[in-house]
Design a protein around this nucleic acid. Structure first.
Lengths: 222, 222
DNA sequence: TTACACTTGTAACAAATGTTACACTATTTT
DNA sequence: AAAATAGTGTAACATTTGTTACAAGTGTAA
């Protein structure tokens, strides 16, 4: 088991080297294994323990009442899954979690986490910080989704990943459409129009920004 | 000052009665006062301390890059403002906060909070729980916004507040449109159509559900 | 009451997006 | 290499939403 990866996980990152063995010995956990494509958790599952992804990667997605998919994020090891929900009154998984590759996950009981939080200040800090960052992430996602037009979203998305004119759409258009919460052909059309308008070029996932002024204007108008 | 209200604040709620005086004495804070309409914090302000709203109410809203308003929530006293961001790496206020009435706010330093978290387990639990609930709220808001059609949002919104056929739209249509992130006339039109279709009736803010089947179908289709 | 600000209903039109369908390409898997 | 799977481009059309403008309603304060 890749338990050493646990210490690389953001919520444990602050623990001093000389305390790490103690920390690991105190912790009560068990390992679970998932194959690519398997569901690790479903929207609505009760969160009774802290899940930490030690190996592999997963995607978190939300299925709306209408059945449409909203791709929330991809999580790589080592990282915790939904740690914020461990202490919520309504402690249900907010998303479906699906293994993108073979995964190893360790499960730590809530009691064990509480104990460490109370007695290990570095762990407390790491845990708080991670949850804070998550809340920030969700806020940003909220803001992003409130961008009204597809071209506005694309412009924001592209500008955030552009260096010296070059950018890469980290995912397929199909996945991107789910991330934006829009229909795939609509996304494709918007991209085509931006290419026609000579704002960007695109070859596969890689593109160039030809006209920053127009691209920024799309952010402001959308 | 209404310092006694502090103990009624969710993050302090678990502290046993006999520990409360100690808790308040340990805490280092100062009070601030805001008049109705004043901005308490702006999107991007650095969160250096914990703000707790002791008296009054505020609204939190996000201004997108395009200048449109997304109304996030109304917060009533006593409640903390953006406690999750106190520990984030990117510790900026995610929203604009505006006083809806005259407000009293106490400001507690991060150090003082850290100290209490480490030495007062009930406070730790309350703090974690509150932040967990916030993350849950943001997730739900995300899910809600991913509802594609206005009627779908309206249907969800109305069903969540219906008891025995009766419901009340807690805000003006103008505010509701901002909460939904849509244009006001579009919201008005959707409401009119739902009334024409004999799904609901509406008089001012108060309405009745006439056809639950159709209303639920709107949730599923939108 | 009058005046004012705020809210709502509605219409005509423009713009954006969704839906469906199909051909085609790229990438894996066998 | 062949087959299967996933991803892309695009067209025609329906639907939804935004925009703008104006009239009418509501409540509040002078």
């Amino acid at each position: 088991m890749d338990i050493d990866n646990l210490i690389l996980c953001p919520i444990c990152g602050n623990i001093p080297v000389n305390e790490r063995d103690d920390f690991l010995n105190e912790l009560k956990f068990k390992a679970k294994y998932f194959k690519k494509g398997e569901w690790i958790a479903q929207q609505g599952d009760i969160v009774k323990a802290l899940y930490i992804l030690l190996k592999g990667s997963v995607k978190a997605e939300m299925i709306s009442d209408a059945g449409t998919v909203l791709n929330i994020e991809t999580i790589n090891a080592p990282n915790p899954l939904a740690p914020a929900f461990l202490f919520a009154e309504n402690n249900h998984f907010p998303v479906d979690v699906v293994a993108l590759e073979d995964c190893e996950i360790i499960v730590i009981s809530k009691e064990s986490i509480m104990k460490q939080l109370a007695c290990n200040e570095m762990f407390l800090q790491g845990f708080m910080k991670f949850n804070s960052n998550r809340a920030h992430f969700l806020s940003e996602r909220l803001k992003f989704l409130s961008t009204k037009t597809i071209k506005g979203k694309l412009a924001k998305y592209i500008l955030a990943r552009t260096e010296n004119m070059d950018f890469s759409l980290d995912m397929s258009q199909t996945a991107l459409a789910e991330y934006f919460g829009v229909a795939r052909p609509s996304l494709s059309r918007s991209l085509s129009e931006m290419i026609d308008d000579e704002i960007i070029t695109l070859k596969g996932k890689n593109g160039k920004v030809l006209n920053f002024t127009k691209l920024r204007r799309l952010v402001t108008n959308g």
